[in-house]
């Protein structure tokens, strides 16, 4: 029962909120350009579905590519860190600098460097930068968290560095990596949208551009429709990584079984 309740309760709350929203807008006669009713947003979604869905696809594509590149680079770098303390000490602070620098602040610079004609590359780079750090930090932590007895076990059998990495450290770090990826996928989407905002009109065709465009035209229903698509994309990506995590770790870890 509790299992079903965890689905039903939030869904029911959401539906009640939507109904309340609908009635509040109608009762208070709030103009469409201030706050459209859920029914107006749904209509707008139906009317503009071609534009919105093609833009959502652009945003989704960049988000996934940026996420894949960020994950690959971050895992590779964390593995490199595990092999050399000197490399870790030298490069980790640089990674932290990228993490703490607001993407909005460096976006114009990246845009200038890659050229306004290649805005999509700039967006990709920015989203990659935003998505990079959680995977790096978590992979690094995972590799370092290997139980000392397990290290001793591998030492006892004379395991080489490579054997230790492949058969112990990386598998041990996998739950940490996937946790990092769950954070990273959301950040990748945020990074893509922020970068699209900065790239501005004419250069980007993602959902952020649809939001700017709708805002400029006071088409708030369309703006909300784009926003809803973004939320759906975010939830879809998070659930996708959670599902992959569940499949991959199904039999690996005690807490995943119970």
């Amino acid at each position: 029962m509790i299992r079903y309740l965890s689905y039903i309760a939030p869904l029911l709350t959401f539906v009640i909120l939507l109904i309340l929203w609908e009635f509040l807008v109608i009762l208070n006669k709030i103009p469409l350009y201030i706050l459209p009713a859920p029914s107006d947003i749904f209509s707008s979604l139906l009317v503009n579905y071609k534009d919105l869905f093609s833009s959502a696809f652009v945003t989704l594509r960049i988000t996934i590519i940026a996420f894949a590149i960020a994950s690959f680079l971050a895992i590779s770098l964390a593995i490199l860190f595990s092999q050399s303390k000197l490399i870790e000490l030298s490069l980790y602070p640089i990674a932290v600098i990228f993490q703490v620098t607001p993407v909005v602040a460096i976006a114009p610079l990246i845009l200038i460097w890659v050229g306004f004609d290649n805005a999509e590359y700039a967006i990709l780079i920015l989203a990659t930068i935003v998505a990079f750090f959680p995977v790096l930090a978590n992979t690094n932590l995972g590799i370092k968290s290997v139980n000392n007895n397990l290290h001793e076990l591998f030492s006892l059998y004379g395991a080489s560095r490579f054997q230790r990495l492949i058969k112990l450290q990386i598998p041990f770090a996998l739950p940490f990596i996937l946790t990092g990826m769950k954070t990273s996928i959301g950040l990748s989407l945020i990074g893509t949208v922020v970068a699209e905002f900065v790239a501005g009109s004419g250069t980007s065709t993602g959902l952020a551009w649809r939001i700017i465009e709708a805002g400029n035209r006071l088409d708030i229903a369309k703006l909300f429709a784009a926003l809803i698509l973004l939320v759906i994309l975010g939830i879809f990506l998070f659930l996708l990584i959670s599902y992959i995590e569940k499949i991959v770790l199904k039999k690996w870890h005690d807490n995943s079984i119970r």
Binding site: N149, L153, Y157, Q163
Partner: peptide, 23 residues
């Protein structure tokens, strides 16, 4: 060891085979 130090991602047989694999 004091704890079993089994690798949770390997099944029982693969855990037993580990020393032979490493050597």
């Amino acid at each position: 060891f004091q704890d079993s130090t089994l690798l949770p991602w390997r099944n029982v047989l693969d855990n037993i085979l580990l020393p032979l694999e490493l050597t």
